[in-house]
Amino acid sequence: MLGSLALLAGPTYLWLLVTIFLPLMAMLYFSFLTIAPIAGPGGTFTLSHYVDIFTKPVYLINLKRSLIMGLEVTFFCALVGYPAAYLLARQIKNRWREALLLLVVLPFWSNALVRTFSWTMVLSDNGLLGQWLHVLWPGGPSLDLLYSYKAIVIGLVHAYLPYMILTCYVSLQAIDGTLAEAALSLGASHRQVFQRIILPLSLPGLVAGSILIFVPVVGAFMEPRVLGGQQGITFGTIIESQFTTSFNWPLGAAMGFVLLAVVLIVMALFFPLLRKHLN
């Protein structure tokens, strides 16, 4: 029995060991070294990378910036996505609902890079949005959003909105319709039904969606680079450049672990609610 179990699940865990767990351990090890032990004998033990991250403004400012970006993107996704999920789950019926839901999910299966890139064509001053705005409102203000923080947020909200709609939809449509009827029959107003029945019961979906969005957005580097231009420096892009251009792997590794710690703290804060959702 144990043998068949090992035979069934063994290869998977072996694979994950080599590709996820050992690399993470190696990265942790690197983060405490002065130089990466790649070319020759390695560096010596140091805490300086972690000290740098928490003392030098360039890292702190960008960590804060990435965190704020994560929160903002998550917030806008919830603001736009929750009502859409609510309408899909509780107002729109049957065949329409299925078709609209499919349409929501579809773009999320097209290449993320390509979708991000296409925003450059929409947002630049001579892009589509700008050109149409000039046609509609000659002499109006120029709409040069590209290469700004706003462009990054728009691109990220666009990329992650379907996650929020989906997780909220799943928990909203799982709410038994008779609960709302019961509340109404007990004298609750529609507003009270929403506040006291629907919202609390759909909260796990909102939390799950928020985590699914916050985690990758905090570590985003492609979207800031493509849409942010000079403005596009985030904690994620700094990590990326440690590995691809500056070749300071130990510093990059330490930054990666700081980012991972932030992600874990956020997950730990919300885990009780998330577990409820998974069950």
């Binding site: 699940a9 865990y13 994950l16 590709t19 996820i20 767990f21 050992l22 690399p23 993470l24 190696a26 990265m27 690197f30 990466a36 032990p37 790649i38 985590i211 985690v215 990758p216 905090v218 570590g219 985003a220 580097f221 994620g236 990590i239 990326e240 590995f243 792997w249 990059g252 590794a253 990666g256 980012l259 991972l260 992600v263 997950m267």
Partner: peptide, 28 residues
């Protein structure tokens, strides 16, 4: 625990997964 071990590759930012793999694969 075995179920939990499936989660990291789902929930870690790809940036971290990717750089960790790069570093480890290069090193080994």
């Amino acid at each position: 625990w075995f179920e939990l071990l499936l989660l990291p590759s789902l929930t870690m930012p790809w940036l971290i997964t990717g750089t960790a793999m790069m570093l480890f694969f290069f090193w080994t």
